[in-house]
């Protein structure tokens, strides 16, 4: 003989809905956590790269600044400055001599009317674009 007895002291409660909701929330929270974690990781990576680049550029700037100061000091030396002035003077002479004055006067002659052809009294050169 088989007798079915219910010996439970509390009513049967099912937690399925709660577990399903909690599980879904945990999955969503996990995905959100992973997404945010990935975002933070990327941001930190970019920041690190930027910092490395900035540091490198600062180093380069410092190096160039030192080079500039060294060159300034070098060109500031009296004999070098004199050489620079002399080179500038020679360059002006070379520049003046390389200009084709004959051709320029021939061109001027073509446009100068007869009434003032003989009176081109002075001429000084400001710039040269003939090269």
């Amino acid at each position: 003989m088989k007798v079915r007895l219910n010996l439970a002291t509390k009513a049967l409660e099912t937690h399925r809905r709660f577990l399903a909701g909690a599980g879904l929330t945990a999955v969503v929270a996990g995905l959100l956590f992973l997404g945010l974690g990935w975002h933070v990781h990327s941001a930190r990576k970019v920041d690190a790269e930027l910092r490395a680049r900035t540091g490198k550029m600062r180093q380069e700037m410092a190096k160039l600044e030192a080079q500039r100061k060294e060159l300034e000091r070098y060109f500031g030396q009296k004999d070098i400055a004199n050489l620079h002035d002399r080179a500038a003077f020679i360059n002006t002479i070379l520049d003046a001599r390389s200009f084709n004055w004959t051709l320029m006067f021939m061109d001027l002659e073509h446009i100068l009317p007869e009434v003032c052809a003989s009176s081109a009294s002075s001429l000084s050169r400001l710039q040269d674009t003939s090269k």
Partner: peptide, 17 residues
């Protein structure tokens, strides 16, 4: 270039310009 040109009259000046 900087030019100084002598002209005999106004007409010549205009013609040159």
């Amino acid at each position: 270039m900087k030019l100084s040109v002598g002209v005999t009259n106004d007409e010549a000046e205009l013609k040159f310009e």
